[in-house]
């Protein structure tokens, strides 16, 4: 009797095993396959060991892309998380303006990624774009197609515009979930606004912030469409991030072996950072 139940259980799990196999394990194993072999055609393949990995890890162009990528993700987190929390605190808690502000905030999130790039490409043009013309008009020599720093800042501002709303909406939901009695208790204690934030709101937002940091890190670390449309990775390679290098390698040059090795390293970096963020935020409450 017990044995039969056991076999039933396996049968019930089978659909999930199949779905995971088709959606995750098999594509991943294909990549692993390519990363360890030099493949010319269906019947001609050679095992190359870690050669592709060594090649990729020694590629100075990829080092540059990795550094730019890390700087970009760091800037994104440092700007968007505090800004998102701050703006969420400023939103009205009830009343007719709640739905108005939530809808307005959600708008950038609804725009497809390549359209975001196009919008900012036009918006920032020094000759006809609203922002470009004004910046030049008030004395800045701004030109995102020619100047590396300008291009970089434009990509960053574009990402802040596109994604800060996500952080705001997540934090706003987290703040709304705090019972009013917490604020009353703080008032009775005579706690300052800062103390309310530090000892009530911030700890209560911990779970939401974990999600926000992870999502923002992962999305920003994989950024592709927006800078590709806006600058094409230029000027030079100032805004060439990891995923664009990868695409060039795999689709442009058809170097499938190195590209596969690169993909796996890319994936492991994201996994590692996500895990570090996860542990850090979870253990945050032990201090102070």
């Amino acid at each position: 009797m017990e044995k039969r139940e056991y076999q039933w259980a396996w049968l019930m799990v089978l659909p999930v095993v199949l779905v995971v196999a088709f959606s995750a394990i098999m594509p991943l194993m294909t990549v692993v396959n390519y990363s360890l072999q030099d493949i010319f055609g269906p019947n001609s393949r050679f095992f190359v060991g870690t050669a592709w990995f060594t090649e990729v890890l020694r590629d100075p162009a990829l080092h540059g892309a990795l550094i730019r990528q890390l700087l970009f993700s760091a800037a994104v987190l440092l700007i968007q998380i505090p800004l998102g929390v701050g703006l969420a605190l400023c939103l009205p808690k009830k009343g007719p303006w709640v739905s108005v502000s939530l809808v307005l905030l959600a708008l950038p999130l609804l725009v497809p990624w390549n359209v975001v790039g196009t919008i900012w490409q036009v918006f920032s043009r020094p000759d006809v774009g609203f922002a470009g013309v004004i910046l030049n008009g008030i004395g800045f020599d701004y030109n995102y197609t020619g100047d590396s720093l300008d291009a970089w800042l434009t990509v960053l501002v574009m990402d802040v515009w596109h994604w800060t709303s996500l952080v705001i909406l997540l934090c706003y939901a987290g703040l709304q979930a705090i019972p009013d009695a917490f604020y009353q208790a703080a008032r009775i204690d005579g706690a300052s606004r800062w103390a309310v934030f530090r000892f009530i709101e911030l700890p209560k937002l911990k779970g939401v912030l974990l999600i926000a940091v992870l999502l923002r890190f992962i999305f920003s670390f994989r950024i592709y469409a927006e800078p590709f449309v806006l600058t094409g990775g230029g000027p030079g390679n100032a805004t060439t991030f990891l995923s664009q290098s990868l695409t060039t390698m795999a689709v442009g040059q058809f170097d499938l072996g190195p590209a596969a090795a690169f993909s796996l390293i890319y994936f492991l970096i994201i996994l590692l950072f996500s895990y570090v963020f996860y542990l850090t935020i979870l253990n945050m409450d032990r201090e102070g």
Binding site: P179, A181, F182, Q184, F199, P203, K204, D285, G288
Partner: peptide, 20 residues
């Protein structure tokens, strides 16, 4: 205002500072 009074209050919900 409440901060100038001398009051202690306990609520239905268990209200403590979560990180302390």
């Amino acid at each position: 205002p409440v901060r100038k009074r001398s009051v202690g209050m306990v609520y239905q919900q268990f209200i403590n500072y979560p990180s302390l």
